[in-house]
């Protein structure tokens, strides 16, 4: 009997507690935003987004090393990266954001947002946090091609130019190597009588140089 009454009183009082909670919430300011009329950024303060908001991706090109980790991490293969080595004869001497010397031009960095599932795996994989979620989440458009975003700072001509410079450098190096080789051969022929050990080591270095140039 005591139990029974206790039970009733407890049930009743817990209901009152619940009602108190909802009553307090009734007068708390709302958390939602009248979205198309009021942009969430206006309300939350610009560049403030909820943590883990998976919005449109943004690539901060000065930070990107061109390591292609993001491309590999992407489960739907929507990132396409093509890099071009920075030629040493290039007049531009680009630096990374942290002041290191840039090794690769990003001649192509495309993300296809039509495919992207906004999983955020690329942002985790990136060693320099160059690829991040932006605060922009409105990407509906009338043409699917608009969703293919090019992040590379270069247009086609610039890419061609950079490639040409690189090719020139390769050519120069090859010529130089050839010249070196020829010079070496010449020298060898001239110094036919000299020590055989020196000659063989010369050959090897020039061969190494050739291989390197080709691979680039």
């Amino acid at each position: 009997m005591i139990n029974y009454l206790k039970n009733i009183i407890k049930g009743f009082s817990t209901i009152l507690v619940g009602m108190k909670v909802t009553f307090i919430n009734l007068f708390r300011p709302n958390v939602t935003v009248q979205y198309p009329n009021v942009h969430p950024l206006v309300r939350a303060g610009s560049d403030k987004m909820p943590d883990n908001a998976r919005n449109k991706l943004n690539v901060i090109i000065p930070k990107c090393t061109g390591c292609k980790s993001c491309e590999k991490a992407c489960p739907v293969n929507c990132i396409t990266i093509e890099t071009t080595k920075v030629a040493s004869i290039d007049t531009e001497k680009p630096l990374m954001e942290d002041g290191k010397k840039r090794v690769f031009w990003l001649s192509q960095f495309d993300i296809d947002f039509a495919k992207c599932c906004f999983c955020g795996l690329c942002t985790i994989a990136c060693p320099t946090s160059a690829i991040v979620h932006s605060t922009d989440f409105e990407y509906s458009c009338y043409d699917r091609n608009e969703l293919l975003v090019h992040f590379s700072p270069f247009n086609k001509e610039q890419v061609a130019e950079k490639k040409r410079i690189l090719a020139e450098e390769v050519k120069q190096k090859a010529e130089k190597a050839l010249a070196d080789k020829q010079a070496a051969e010449k020298a060898a022929q001239e110094q036919n009588i000299t020590d055989s050990k020196i000659k063989s080591s010369d050959d090897q270095t020039s061969a190494n140089q050739n291989i390197q140039n080709n691979s680039n």
């Binding site: 139990n3 029974y4 039970n7 407890k10 817990t14």
Partner: peptide, 13 residues
């Protein structure tokens, strides 16, 4: 006894 029945019941907190 009514108590016994009510204790079996799930409404008991």
């Amino acid at each position: 006894s009514s108590n016994e029945i009510s204790t079996n019941n799930d409404i008991k907190i």
